[in-house]
Amino acid sequence: MSSGTNPIDAPLTVVVDIEGTTSATGFITEQLYPYSRAHFGRWLDEHGDDPDVVRAVEAVRELIGEPDADDRRIVEALNGWLDRDEKVTPLKALQGMIWAEGFASGELTSHFYPDAIPALRAWHAAGHRLYIFSSGSVAAQRAWFGSSPEGSLLPLFSGHFDTENAGPKRVADSYRAIAARIGELPERLVFLSDVVDELDAAREAGWWTIGVRRPDADEPYYDRGVGDHPETATFARLDLDGDRPILREP
């Protein structure tokens, strides 16, 4: 980590999760998951020689222990993981490629909670560096934030992290790796997520944490709560002006 490059009075750096945090999980599972399911077979057939696809397919074969698995078996494995909503890296990689095509064609448009985009824009304007850390691939993240109902939000972000380039989201070392990659002190980093295990891992790595709970939405982790992490239902309550994040009164 390049400690000392970021003075203590510099704006805090914010890292956001996507599902259940900036955006509704239901939209992703009900709109994007079926879209990728419908296109897995075609994608492997049309893009089978693409190096990223080759790498993802080989990773699937390794994970299922079938080095000679054909495309039919690969699609079967992908759909099985999708049915169980497993955060498997090659599944997320292929989904990201397919979604990117769907967003580019206009078939797909991403979803954001009403408070998310105004807050992200305000934080960026105030000098806070913004990053994404999601189980969705970097390609999926770029497609999602590049195709919001209000246009591309990609200029707001300084970088993207997923389970391939950072590691599992429930492991503290992944957050240490992100801090090292962006050259930021852990005590200058704030992580926003709806999943308590992710928040615990970020705090273990020395980060500030904010648990996001969306009470008016059918979010799968809502009932679990966010443990003893500060909790908010909206980004609008988050004050990042000081040396630590503070939640304003509702």
Score class of each variant (00 low, 15 high):
residue 1 M to Y: 13
residue 1 M to V: 09
residue 2 S to H: 13
residue 2 S to K: 10
residue 3 S to K: 10
residue 4 G to R: 02
residue 4 G to W: 07
residue 7 P to Q: 13
residue 8 I to W: 07
residue 9 D to V: 09
residue 9 D to S: 12
residue 11 P to V: 09
residue 15 V to C: 11
residue 16 V to Q: 02
residue 18 I to V: 15
residue 18 I to C: 05
residue 20 G to F: 05
residue 23 S to E: 03
residue 27 F to D: 05
residue 31 Q to V: 14
residue 31 Q to G: 07
residue 31 Q to R: 11
residue 32 L to M: 12
residue 32 L to V: 05
residue 33 Y to T: 10
residue 36 S to Y: 07
residue 36 S to D: 07
residue 38 A to Y: 09
residue 39 H to C: 10
residue 40 F to S: 03
residue 41 G to S: 15
residue 43 W to T: 15
residue 47 H to K: 10
residue 55 R to H: 11
residue 59 A to P: 01
residue 63 L to W: 02
residue 63 L to F: 05
residue 64 I to E: 06
residue 65 G to L: 10
residue 66 E to K: 13
residue 72 R to K: 13
residue 73 R to G: 11
residue 74 I to T: 12
residue 74 I to Y: 03
residue 74 I to Q: 02
residue 76 E to L: 13
residue 76 E to K: 10
residue 80 G to S: 10
residue 81 W to R: 02
residue 82 L to D: 15
residue 86 E to D: 08
residue 90 P to Y: 04
residue 90 P to K: 05
residue 91 L to P: 01
residue 93 A to E: 09
residue 94 L to W: 01
residue 94 L to I: 10
residue 96 G to C: 01
residue 96 G to N: 00
residue 97 M to Q: 09
residue 97 M to A: 08
residue 97 M to V: 00
residue 99 W to P: 01
residue 103 F to M: 11
residue 103 F to L: 09
residue 104 A to R: 07
residue 104 A to C: 03
residue 106 G to Q: 09
residue 107 E to M: 15
residue 107 E to G: 09
residue 108 L to Y: 06
residue 110 S to W: 00
residue 110 S to M: 06
residue 111 H to G: 04
residue 112 F to Y: 13
residue 113 Y to M: 06
residue 114 P to K: 08
residue 114 P to T: 12
residue 116 A to P: 04
residue 117 I to Q: 08
residue 118 P to S: 05
residue 119 A to M: 06
residue 121 R to A: 10
residue 122 A to T: 14
residue 122 A to K: 11
residue 124 H to N: 12
residue 125 A to Y: 00
residue 126 A to P: 01
residue 126 A to G: 04
residue 131 Y to T: 00
residue 133 F to N: 02
residue 135 S to A: 14
residue 138 V to I: 13
residue 143 A to E: 01
residue 146 G to H: 00
residue 146 G to R: 01
residue 148 S to P: 07
residue 151 G to P: 12
residue 152 S to Y: 08
residue 154 L to F: 01
residue 157 F to E: 04
residue 159 G to T: 03
residue 160 H to K: 02
residue 161 F to A: 04
residue 162 D to G: 05
residue 162 D to I: 04
residue 165 N to Y: 01
residue 166 A to S: 09
residue 168 P to A: 11
residue 170 R to A: 12
residue 170 R to Q: 14
residue 171 V to R: 11
residue 173 D to G: 14
residue 173 D to K: 14
residue 174 S to M: 11
residue 174 S to E: 07
residue 178 I to M: 15
residue 179 A to K: 01
residue 183 G to Y: 03
residue 192 L to E: 03
residue 194 D to H: 06
residue 195 V to T: 14
residue 197 D to K: 15
residue 197 D to R: 12
residue 200 D to G: 02
residue 200 D to A: 08
residue 203 R to G: 06
residue 204 E to D: 14
residue 206 G to H: 06
residue 207 W to G: 08
residue 211 G to C: 05
residue 212 V to Q: 03
residue 213 R to M: 14
residue 215 P to A: 09
residue 216 D to S: 12
residue 218 D to I: 08
residue 223 D to L: 12
residue 223 D to Y: 03
residue 226 V to W: 04
residue 229 H to W: 06
residue 230 P to L: 05
residue 230 P to H: 02
residue 230 P to E: 04
residue 233 A to Q: 07
residue 238 L to A: 00
residue 243 D to K: 05
residue 243 D to A: 14
residue 245 P to R: 05
residue 248 R to F: 06
residue 248 R to M: 13
residue 250 P to W: 09
residue 250 P to Q: 13
